[in-house]
Simulated assay, not measured.
Amino acid sequence: MSTETDDKHQFRPATRLVHAGYDPHEYHGFVNAPVVHASTVLFPDAATMRRRDHSYLYGLRGTPTTDALEGALNDLEGAAGTILVPSGLAAISVPLLAFLSHGDHCLVVDSVYGPTRLFCDTLLTRMGVETEYFDPAIGEGLRGLMRENTRVVFLEAPGSNTFEMIDIRLMAGIAREGGAVSMIDNTWATPLFLRPLDFGVDLSIHALTKYPGGHSDLMLGSVSANAATYKPLRDAQMQIGVNAAPDDAYLTLRGLKTMEVRLRAHERAAFDLARWLETRPEVARVLHPALPSFPGHDLWKAQFNGASGLFSFVLQGGGREQADAFLDALRIFGLGYSWGGYESLALQVDLSDRRFAKAPPEGPVIRLQIGLEDIEDLRKDLERGFSAIGALG
């Protein structure tokens, strides 16, 4: 590794976001990586073609565009290697398929992303893999759930929609002691606010669709691995036959350049509105780990370098009618899935599939994605929602 490359690793995250993964001087000085649309790669002769040590063999195995994004994510995550796949859910399913086989046992935190649970309860079940869910507050009790055939411990921090915090280092350590691979959905924090591999996690998963892309116009996922898990992960990717489209990889590279600026804006606005929501009589509690009132705040503070723009709050009483009235009155917040883009979004959370991390009892849970709009306009929009609830009588 060159001195110049070593120097880049000393830069702070914002600088690394701008410069990681691609050297302009390797491509005529153009500051952006080339968008390479390719399937076939030609070789000068048969002997060269027989060799397997080329940078590029076939479009599925990578191009300069995907290499640039993988390199940037390796730098940000401190990873030995990264794979790119067409969606965040694919970034969850590929590593599970890579490390689980018939007869294996998989431990999954109960506050996991809903489609992760669906994948475990359907396809993995048909494969003969047993999935067991555990309370995010289990702590040391996770040791008691480990079996001889436990091969994967799947984590998410904070928890999906309800934002429970876990002790990441503890759980990754328990997995490793038991001979299991640990993996974590790190989409909420991005590598800027949490580097899971630094806490002993083997695989860090992201929906690049969210903050790295940042503009609600692409679908992409990534898995960044340590040295022990990278080869089987990459092998599984190639065996399944999925990789990223060059245009989506390029858009994600472009999004990375401004991700810290955007994330800090999301963070500030979300925290301001979360504190304001704590004062509202219509709100039973706010589920935001950066709030001192949140039960997992100390764990968040010890592990994370910041908070993104996604959090939830619980209405004080009511049900679907009140939640619908609130949501239907909003004019700036869009009613839509996904998050991490420039626009604010809202929806009612369905927690009916939980076994341990149950829905708060006080009332409906509303999840907010705080975008980049003016914060006072967003506050007034939320007030419209509360007024609509009040009008129900």
Rank of each mutant, 00 (worst) to 15 (best):
S204V: 07
L310E: 04
R320M: 12
S101H: 13
H297Q: 03
T66M: 00
S87N: 11
R51V: 06
A307H: 11
M259N: 05
V201D: 01
V108A: 05
L89T: 08
V261Q: 15
G144I: 10
H28D: 02
T48C: 00
G81K: 11
H37N: 03
A227D: 01
Y27V: 10
R61G: 02
L17S: 00
V129K: 04
P24N: 05
E282K: 13
Y337P: 14
L192K: 01
A157Q: 13
A157C: 08
I375Q: 14
L76H: 01
L263D: 03
A90F: 04
L57K: 03
A79I: 01
Q348V: 14
A391H: 14
D167Q: 10
I138Q: 12
T258A: 10
L100I: 11
R52K: 07
A388I: 15
I138C: 11
E321A: 00
V109N: 02
S216Q: 14
R50I: 06
H25A: 11
G309C: 04
F99Q: 04
G128I: 04
R254L: 06
Y230A: 05
A325H: 11
L218F: 15
E177I: 07
F134Y: 11
T279A: 06
L263N: 01
V286I: 07
A290P: 15
F313M: 02
G29L: 08
T187Y: 11
R169F: 02
G393D: 08
V181H: 12
L192P: 06
S308G: 05
C106A: 08
H54V: 05
A302M: 13
A323E: 09
G336C: 14
Y58L: 09
A20M: 15
L208K: 02
F386V: 14
K231R: 12
R331N: 04
E376W: 14
G88V: 08
L97T: 04
D350C: 12
